[in-house]
């Protein structure tokens, strides 16, 4: 069984034109319809948050918006669930550090 198979070939994907987002300043290629988390996984990036006590790296865990482990700072806004937020051309994604409470101010 060939090992060069990939998910896009499996479903016969013919995506729209790829575009770029950045993660901590580096360019990442995303496909239209992918979430921020999917785009990062596609680039081999699995962690985009550090915990507020241990400073440990985290990324997508439940993949369906339930665990909130994949919180990222997207275009300056913290606490975005990367597994739900669609990637858009030019998005700036940065590692979310600490409590991310900036977005909770009322």
């Amino acid at each position: 069984m060939a090992r060069d198979r990939n998910p896009a070939d499996l479903v016969g994907a013919d995506p729209g034109p790829p575009f770029e987002i950045t993660f901590d300043g580096s360019a990442v290629t995303a496909l239209p319809g992918q979430s921020v988390a999917a785009a990062l996984w596609g680039a081999g990036i699995l962690a985009w948050r550090t915990t507020r006590n241990g400073g440990r790296p985290r990324g997508a865990f439940c993949g369906i918006g339930q665990c909130y482990d994949c919180l990222a700072t997207v275009n300056g806004e913290p606490n975005r669930r990367a597994c739900l937020v669609p990637a858009r051309p030019g998005d700036t994604v940065t590692t979310q550090e600490g409590h991310g409470h900036a977005g909770l101010a009322v």
Partner: peptide, 23 residues
């Protein structure tokens, strides 16, 4: 289990089905 790369089984499938990506 909190290491990056450890993901829910359903989560891996969800990311594959919707985003066509693997961890």
């Amino acid at each position: 289990w909190t290491l990056p790369g450890v993901i829910g089984a359903g989560g891996a499938q969800a990311m594959l089905k919707s985003g066509l990506v693997l961890p």
